[in-house]
Structure formats: structure tokens, C-alpha cells
Write a protein that binds this DNA or RNA. Sequence first.
DNA 1: CAGCTTAAAAGTGAATTCACTTTATGGTCC
DNA 2: GGACCATAAAGTGAATTCACTTTTAAGCTG
Lengths: 244, 244
Amino acid sequence: MIKDTSLLADANGQIVTEDDDSPSLVDEVYQKLLLRIIRCEFPGGAELKSTQLAREIGVSRTPVVQALARLQADGIVIQQKNHRAVVREGAENWLLEIHELRLLLEPSAAAMAAQRIPESEVARLQTLAAEVKACQQQYEDGNQSREHLQKWGAASRAFDYALHLAIAEHCGNLPISEAIHKCWSYKRVSYSAADESPEIMTRGLYDHTVLLDALQNRDSETASAAMTMHLRNASRMRPDRLIV
Amino acid sequence: MIKDTSLLADANGQIVTEDDDSPSLVDEVYQKLLLRIIRCEFPGGAELKSTQLAREIGVSRTPVVQALARLQADGIVIQQKNHRAVVREGAENWLLEIHELRLLLEPSAAAMAAQRIPESEVARLQTLAAEVKACQQQYEDGNQSREHLQKWGAASRAFDYALHLAIAEHCGNLPISEAIHKCWSYKRVSYSAADESPEIMTRGLYDHTVLLDALQNRDSETASAAMTMHLRNASRMRPDRLIV
DNA sequence: CAGCTTAAAAGTGAATTCACTTTATGGTCC
DNA sequence: GGACCATAAAGTGAATTCACTTTTAAGCTG
């Protein structure tokens, strides 16, 4: 039928297809629904009808059904057989509560990763950290322009993401790693254009540096503590917003 | 999410339709595949072709594709677009590693639940505990017959399940609750005919009693510690088996 | 007009179909 | 014989279709 797939990346404009692989329709639908749930466009108790959503989004029912199944597996949506899927009560706070989950997982993961992350990986992360530092310098030197701030923000987020995911990857426990990945995939939904303030980014870079040093020194205790502090800081610095 | 507590699939996953609601085909296929992966029938790196599996299981490709998607969301299987799904390397240890994840989640969940679990729920769990105790007595009084042992085992498992899930349910954090549920859904796959020894069950009942008392007294510290001990015991008591 | 019945509409689970991509096979050339 | 390439077979993502269930709304009875 119609095979033009290029009009998608508008919602949050984050994913640009790298050459070969565009995400599957299921992924896109899943992302869209998740975003709308987190934004309370679909509040708790709302009914998600696959037929209606399919019409609305402009795809067939098949990928919608699969996306709903994934939301159900996540626990965000409940659906009993032959009934419509409904958004779970309390799903609005999902991101907030995910942060608490991270507080249980990531410190331990950091401790575990400190014992086994390869040096090459630490080195890679350190170069990323240096890049962030450089961007920060550029911003401060170059009359604090909005342009430089954005660049700094991008580098900061890239480093953030890479560090936390590297820790997950090298913690040596697959389900824990997957759980952390999932937390970040939720976080990512809200990333869109969330520009951080310079204060937050400075603080974040400091936290991350401490953490990275601990990893390099194979110091599990410190790594765990640093991660805990980092996560606590993040939630303390913005107690108001849903987007953590 | 988990709705019917009564159905335990046998080795082949044959499920008799109790009452009115049979699980969807997707669920059945998912369970079957998961079991076969955990049993290393599909070792790490094995290719899972939806067409072939569909033929083999005797359903259409649709539910198989959905089951594979769920396995992918779990992180047990990896599949890039237009390629076959492959079992993730290291998936054999999934259950073992899930136990480590529980060790991160459940103690905190117990502490949280101690502050907010309703008394009625505690009461319900206590009656279940009493039933287990009664079964134990029957077993010891009545010349330790295999029959009584099985009954005791069933009661023990029911209580185990109810207690841990109640804690998850009342911890006040949806994603954490869901994560624990997921751990148990994996554990459940291996439950089949895993008869426990009387020693393990006695120890388990003791652990659970301590935990339940802590919940009743709203004592988070003790609840957390008791849960930690309980989980440590469980892994210590059977360091050999895959089935935790 | 409330309450029950029931037919139409909408929705769901699962099979089938279709366009396209990857993998396997067989033959040619060096 | 082994590298290379065309072509067939198998596999995949997604749309469509079909049988069945739930919801909705109208119609009927008292």
C-alpha cells in the first residue's frame, strides 16, 4: 500500500535513522503510547482500544496490539482477555517511581561493575567526560551563548547515558542490566528537549567524575556510594517536575 | 497481571481450562519458549524462527511473533529488524541471576510495605501461615506420608507466593512491584513439580513468620533484614540447582 | 418509566496474506 | 577446488480477514 515511512520523527524529534535500520512500527507505536500515558493524555483508567488507536495513528491494528502487549508486560496497562486495555491507576507517576527503582538497582550495579568493567571501557567514558568538560569551558569562555549551552547539554546527556548504561552492561547480571536499561528507556521518552540548567549539569559532571574514578580504581564501595549520591541529588534538585 | 493462581502448567505446558478464562495463545507460547530457554533446550545463540516455531507448536505465526517480542522486551532474546531472534548469550543463568535481582528489590519492598500494608492483608497472610503450620503438623503426626508431604508443599508454596506478592503489591511503587512480579513469573516457570524438602520448608516457614511479624509491627528495618536473610538462605540451601 | 431482552455495532484474538529482506543453493569463471 | 554472483527458498514486518466476545443501544413488557 502506501510505503512512505519518513514522516515519523516529529513527535519528539529525537531519533534520526542511522543509515540502515529504522525502528519497527511496533516500537514507534509503543513510544507514542508511552509518552501519551506519561503526559497524562491517557490518565489512569483510560481505555485504549486497539482499533481506535490504529485508525488514529494511521497503522494497522497489528502493531498497536503488539505495543499494547508490551505495555501490559511492563505493567503500565492492564488487559484481560477479550476486554479493552486500560491504563493502570497511578501510571502518571511512573517516571517518578522509576527513579526510586533506579535507586535500588544502580548503586549495586555500580559496585558490581567496579569489579569487572574493562579498562578500555573506562577509558572510553573518560574521553566522553573530557568532551563534556571541554563543552563546559567553551560555554563559560564564549559569553554563555544559548548555542554553546545546547552543545554542552547534548554532550552532557550523551555522557550520562553512556556511563549509566556501561555500568549496567558490565555489572555481570543480565536481568539487572536489563532492568536498568528499561528504566533508561522510560527516562529517554521524556528526554525530548529537556534542557538542563548549567548548575545541574556541573553538579552532574562532578558526580559522574567521582563515580568514574571509583570504577577505575575498582572501588566498589565508593562507586556504590557515588551512584547513590548522584541519584539522590538528581531527585533533590528538581522535586517539582515529573520529568526526572 | 497474574490473575489465576490455580493453574500450574505441567512439563509441556498443557493447561486445562479452569472455569472460564484460559490464557491467551501468546501467553502459552511465551511460557513454552521461556521454559525451553531456561532448560537450555535453546542455548545461548540459538535461532528462534517464528515460522518454524509456529509449525512446531501448532499455532499461527502471529502469537509466536508476539511471544518473541515479549522475550525481547525481557532481554532474554535479541532480534534486529528483519533478522531472526537469537537467544541471548548467558540466558541459561537467567533464574540464578533473577535471584540476585530479587535480593536488590525485595528487602526494600518489604521495608516499604511494612509502612503501608493494611492490617486485613496481614491477617489474611497469617491465616495462610497457620494453614501451612497445620499441614506441617499433619505431616509429622501422620507417619510422614508422601501424601501429606505434598499437601504441605502445596500450602507452603501458596503461602510463599502470597506473602512475597503481597509485599510487592503494597510497597507503594508500581515499577518496583511490577519488577518483583516479573521475577516471580520467571520463578513460576520452574515451579512445576519442584518438591521441597521438609527442612527447607521448615526453614522457609520460620523466615516467613519473622517477616510477617515485622510487617504487623510496622518494623521496616526488621522486615528488610528478614527478607534479606530469607533470600540468602534460599540460595545457600541449594547452591547446586538451577532452579531457585 | 424502570427493568429486562435482544439485535446491531464495536472490539478482540488469532489466522491468513502480501510485499519485501535475508539466507541458502547452485552454477559460472578463475 | 575456491571466490563470486544470480536466483530460489525461507523468513520477516505489517495489513487484512474471520470467527467470536463484549459493549451499546434500542425495543419491548409490565
